[in-house]
């Protein structure tokens, strides 16, 4: 149970850091916002799927 709580907490922190990173890249005009947000969406989907799958396996 505590493992899942920790995993979710770390994942939320990672996703929040990802938002900060994307906004920094947009502010500095490193790449176009749609490309950066699309990349973030792919990464976030991977993270969310990984957390859900791992939580399911650990708790079952």
């Amino acid at each position: 149970m505590w493992y899942v709580v920790g995993l979710v907490a770390v994942s939320v922190a990672v996703l929040a850091l990802g938002v900060w990173f994307v906004r920094r890249e947009i502010r500095d005009e490193v790449s176009s916002p749609p490309v950066l947000w699309a990349g973030y969406a792919v990464v976030a989907a991977f993270v969310v799927f990984g957390v859900l799958r791992t939580s399911w396996v650990v708790l079952s």
Partner: peptide, 13 residues
């Protein structure tokens, strides 16, 4: 990250 989750979840289980 996926390797870390794999290793630590195996450890936790």
């Amino acid at each position: 990250c996926s390797f870390l989750v794999g290793i630590t979840s195996a450890w936790a289980r």
